[in-house]
């Protein structure tokens, strides 16, 4: 039981660590200036690793991600702005490298999908709501009531 608990604890620590950790493979990769390093991490977190495709280059340990991390830091040290660096990357790898692509004709569907699906859902649900809120049927007429009574009093 103790071993099991220890294992669980270890797993939890690993999972927690992996969710916040960076794949910077060695501390040498980091810039000596903590402010610039934080800036670099922020830029890197917005850039997709082209090898893993669902991780940022800050998280990925693919060799290409490491090269791109290095370029981000190099350009920051040369005094280039985060915007320039992201543009430099986009020129080489396309809009796909941005984890948050710019709004354009080709990304419009991606950005508008939440609103579109909400609208489609609303349109689909409207007939159901209309049915629920429709007025109650008119009360029975005297004639109908008599007919009903005849049926029930048959036996």
């Amino acid at each position: 039981m103790r071993v099991c608990l220890k294992g669980l604890l270890l797993l939890a620590v690993c999972l927690y660590g992996s969710s916040i950790g960076h794949a910077i493979d060695s501390p040498d990769e980091m810039l000596p200036d903590p402010v610039l390093e934080q800036k670099a991490q922020h830029i890197g977190q917005q850039l997709r690793c082209l090898v893993c495709q669902n991780e940022s280059i800050e998280e990925s340990s693919a060799p290409l991600a490491k090269d791109l991390r290095h370029i981000v830091r190099q350009q920051l040290q040369q005094g280039r702005s985060p915007k320039d660096i992201t543009l430099w990357m986009t020129q080489r790898y396309g809009e796909f490298i941005r984890l948050q692509p710019r709004f354009s004709a080709s990304t419009a569907l991606l950005w508008l999908m939440p609103f579109l699906s909400l609208m489609i859902g609303f349109l689909l649900a409207r007939p159901l709501w209309a049915r629920r809120t429709s007025p109650p049927p008119a009360p029975l007429t005297v004639e109908e009531r008599q007919k009903l009574n005849q049926f029930f009093n048959k036996d």
Binding site: L50, V51, P63, L64, D67, L68, I71, R92, Y93, G94
Partner: peptide
């Protein structure tokens, strides 16, 4: 050797 040319070409692998 350092893969920099490949990055200029946008090579991913």
């Amino acid at each position: 050797y350092d893969g920099q040319c490949a990055i200029e070409w946008g090579v991913t692998g």
